[in-house]
Design a protein around this nucleic acid. Structure first.
Lengths: 225, 225
DNA sequence: GGTATAAGTAACTGATTGGTCACATGACTG
DNA sequence: CAGTCATGTGACCAATCAGTTACTTATACC
C-alpha cells in the first residue's frame, strides 16, 4: 500500500515524488484529454480551469501546453474525441441485418442510451454550439467524419421506403434531427423541466418511459398509414 | 450635437460629462437587465463580464451591484425575466376558441416563432440547466409561474381527447417536452448540425420547412388513428 | 433656497487564471 | 557510458475580473 494519500490510479502509477517520472507520453496525453472532457463538459469552455484539468490529470500544466498548445486547441481536441467516439459507437451498430423498423428503433435506442451513458457528449455538443461551432468547422477530422454519420439513417429509411413499411416522403435530415432532439432535450434540460412539470425525470422508470415515448414518436413519423 | 464621440443614444441621454446625471433609477435598472440578458445569453454565465454589461447599459458598475447584489443574483433576475416573458406571451395565445387540433398547431407554431424571435431564451434556458437549475429553484416567481404553464397544453389535449380527435393515452408532459425539444434542438444546435448534415438550416425556407415537419410530428403523435 | 439623500462615477483591490521560464531527470542512441 | 533530447516540475508573470471605496451631483422634501 502507498503510505500517503496517493490513490495509486492506473497500472503502476509510480509516485512522482519518490520513484520519479514514469515517462509515459501518450498515457499522459490521454489522461489530459480525459480530464479536459470532464472539466469542459461540467463547466463549459469559459468556466473550465486549465489548472484544474492539469491537476485532475495528475500532471504539470507545462505538459498540457506542450501537447495541446492552448486552452482553445485543447477544447478542439476534446470535441474531436467525443464526436469520433460517438460516431465509432454508432458505426458498430450493424443495422443492415435488421428489418427497417427494428433498425430505426435500434437507432433511437442507441442515441438515447448513449446520451445517458455519456452526458459529457451532450454538454460539449451544446458548448460547441454556443461557440458557433468554431472548432467543429476548423477540424478536418470532423468535417470528414460527419459525412458518413447521416448515411446510417438514410440507409435505414431508404430500405424501409423500398419495402413499404415507411412513408416515401420523409426527409432523412429532419428525421435525424428530430431523433436527436427528443433524446437530447430531455436529458439536457431535465433540471429546469423537472421543476416546470413538477415531476422527477431522471428515475429509471421515467427514463424508460421516455425512451418508449420517443420510439413511438419516431415510428409515428415514418410509418406508412 | 455632442462635441465628442458620444453617440447620444436614447431619448434625452444627457452627456454624462456636461449636463450630468439624468437620474433615472428604474430606467437604469431595466437597461442593466437588458444588457445582462444579451451578455449572459451570448457568453454564458462564466463567460459573461460584469464590466461589459455595465458598459452596454451605459452605467457604472457601482449601480449594477447596488441594484442586483452580485453576478449570480443578476443572472437570477435575468432568468426570471426571460421565463416570465415567455409565459406571458404564451398565456396571451387564447387557445380556448380554437378547435383542439388547431390549438395544438398554434402552440407548436408559437414555440417555434418565439424561439426564433428570442434566441436569448433558449441560450439562457440552456445555461441555467448547465448550472443545475440553481436559480430556477431558488426563485419564488418561477416556482409559482411554472405551475400554470403546463396547464395550457393539458387543456388542449384534454379537449381533443374529449371530442375524439386525439388519442386518450398521451402523457401531456411527454408531449410538451417533445414539442419544445424539436423546436429547441434545431435552433440551438444549428451550427454543428448544418455541418454534420451539409445543409443550410437557418434560411427562411429551411425554417418554414422545419416548422411544417414539427407540426406533422406533433400531430402524428396525438392524432387518433 | 437649502439640505438630506439617492443616483452616479472613477479609481482601486485582492484573487484568479491563462500562459511561460528556468531548470531537473530519465530513456534512448552511438 | 556519455551526450542529447523528450518528458516533466514548480515558480513566476501579466492580464483579467468580481466586487468595493471614496467621492460627486442631481433630485426631493421642507
Amino acid at each position: 500500500m502507498a503510505p500517503d494519500s496517493k490513490p495509486a490510479t492506473g497500472v503502476d502509477s509510480a509516485d512522482p515524488r519518490s520513484a520519479r517520472h514514469p515517462r509515459r507520453p501518450d498515457l499522459s496525453r490521454s489522461r489530459i484529454l480525459d480530464a479536459a472532457v470532464a472539466e469542459f463538459s461540467q463547466k463549459g469552455f469559459a468556466g473550465a480551469r486549465v489548472d484544474e484539468i492539469a491537476a485532475q490529470a495528475q500532471i504539470g500544466k507545462r505538459m498540457l501546453y506542450q501537447y495541446f498548445g492552448n486552452k482553445g486547441q485543447l477544447f478542439q481536441a476534446v470535441i474531436e474525441k467525443v464526436y469520433t467516439d460517438i460516431w465509432e459507437a454508432e458505426a458498430s451498430l450493424d443495422l443492415q441485418n435488421l428489418p427497417p423498423r427494428d433498425a430505426l428503433v435500434a437507432l433511437v435506442t442507441f442515441v438515447w442510451r448513449y446520451y445517458i451513458a455519456h452526458p459529457e457528449f451532450t454538454k460539449l455538443l451544446n458548448e460547441e454550439n454556443m461557440l458557433g461551432a468554431r472548432h467543429f468547422r476548423s477540424s478536418k477530422v470532423l468535417r470528414e467524419g460527419s459525412v458518413k454519420s447521416q448515411f446510417l439513417t438514410e440507409q435505414v429509411l431508404a430500405r424501409g421506403v423500398a419495402d413499404g413499411t415507411f412513408r416515401p416522403d420523409i426527409d432523412p435530415v429532419q428525421l435525424c434531427l428530430t431523433k436527436n432532439a427528443i433524446c437530447y432535450y430531455y436529458l439536457m434540460n431535465h433540471a429546469t423541466s423537472s421543476h416546470v412539470y413538477g415531476r422527477k425525470l431522471m428515475t429509471r422508470e421515467a427514463l424508460e418511459a421516455r425512451l418508449a415515448f420517443n420510439i413511438e414518436t419516431i415510428l409515428a413519423i415514418v410509418l406508412a398509414k
